[in-house]
């Protein structure tokens, strides 16, 4: 197991190098003069020249890349063009809500998805199964910004029912649990639906395996057969999906962050793109890529842990 983790970490080095090359090139691949773009349309030639000097754009490309990477390795991602503050500080403030939101909604998806998937599988081809899968399909096809708006309408602003106002949650911000409930639901529903469908099909495959019959022949209770013998095997493909899910939530929660006015990384990045704030964009992409790679390693380790058939060495 230890050698596997080491090997897996070594394998990520080329990926990370690739990512730095990509983020570094971003600035050069944009049509036009990056210094002009960043300085703004109304900037004077002197201002543009100053910007070029500040960004080190006069050096040869390899030197620029070397400077960039050595900066990254020291935790220096440059300074924001807009605010002038260090990119690392700017990102650090916004990353917490994003990571918290992604973690909580993934946890919610896993919890609901697993239970729904298992229930549907053991009731295969009955009304319950069809019903759960219909709800899952609905959850999957619903745009999440719309769900967010609906949740705000009915559970934050609220309506009066028999003198009781249903607006018990907050509609914006991030910090208290009242603020967290609605965005977590908004973001978690689609994931729950995917995991439910995945779990169901995986369970159906496992439940027909010979070792499930062996467990039944031993006199194991059906409930234990399902949760102890079948689910652990069925989880193996689901883990991969959960990992991908979590990874995409890290970068893709922009809409939810906007709807609930959460000061997170997604929204921050969009703003940076609008403002042509290249250092922020580079830093953000780098941090997201790093998190994505880390999540993948964790998933791989978990996968190996569950799937004993893969030889660890």
């Amino acid at each position: 197991m230890f050698t596997f983790i080491i090997r897996r970490l070594v394998q990520t080095i080329p990926v990370l190098i690739g990512v730095t090359i990509l983020t570094f090139s971003m600035i050069h691949l944009v049509p036009g003069d990056p210094a002009q773009i960043m300085a703004g349309e109304s900037a004077s030639p002197q201002q543009v020249e100053l910007m070029r000097e500040r960004l080190g754009l006069n050096d040869p490309i390899p030197v620029q890349y070397f400077d960039y990477v050595s900066g990254v390795l020291q935790g220096d991602l440059g300074n924001s063009v807009r605010s002038g503050r260090a990119v690392s500080d700017e990102i650090a403030i916004r990353i917490r809500p994003t990571v918290e939101l992604a973690t909580m909604s993934t946890a919610l998806s896993v919890f609901i998805g697993l239970i729904a998937g298992v229930l549907a599988a053991v009731r295969r081809n009955t009304f319950g199964d069809t019903f759960i899968m219909l709800v899952a399909l609905f959850g999957l096809s619903m745009p999440n910004f719309w769900l967010g708006i609906m949740l705000i309408q009915y559970l934050a602003i609220g309506v009066d029912i028999f003198g009781f106002n249903t607006g018990i949650f907050a509609a914006s911000g991030w910090g208290t649990w009242q603020q967290q409930v609605l965005p977590v639901i908004t973001l978690g529903v689609a994931g729950a639906a995917i995991i439910a469908r995945m779990t169901r099909s995986s369970m159906l495959e496992v439940i027909d395996q010979d070792y499930i019959r062996t467990a039944r022949a031993k006199g194991v209770k059906e409930r234990v057969v399902v949760y102890r013998h079948a689910l652990k095997n069925a989880m193996i493909p689901v883990v991969t999906v959960v990992g991908l899910q979590f990874g995409s939530l890290l970068g893709g929660a922009v809409l939810t962050e906007s709807v609930f006015a959460i000061n997170g990384l997604g929204r921050f990045m969009i703003d940076a793109i609008r403002a042509r704030d290249f250092p922020i964009m580079q830093g953000g992409v780098l941090v997201l890529a790093f998190m994505f790679v880390s999540v993948n390693i964790v998933v791989d380790i978990l996968y190996r842990f569950l799937n004993k058939r893969i030889d660890l060495n």
Binding site: Q209, D210, Y211, R213, T214, A215, R216, A217, K218, G219, V220, K221, H229, K232, N233, L306, N307, K308, R309
Partner: peptide
């Protein structure tokens, strides 16, 4: 019936490769 299975009457199967739980 569960008290009978694996206790009073046991069973073994054809495919030893797949009849044991891999995890």
């Amino acid at each position: 019936m569960r008290r009978v299975r694996g206790n009073e009457i046991s069973m073994i199967f054809q495919e030893p490769m797949t009849s044991l739980n891999p995890v």
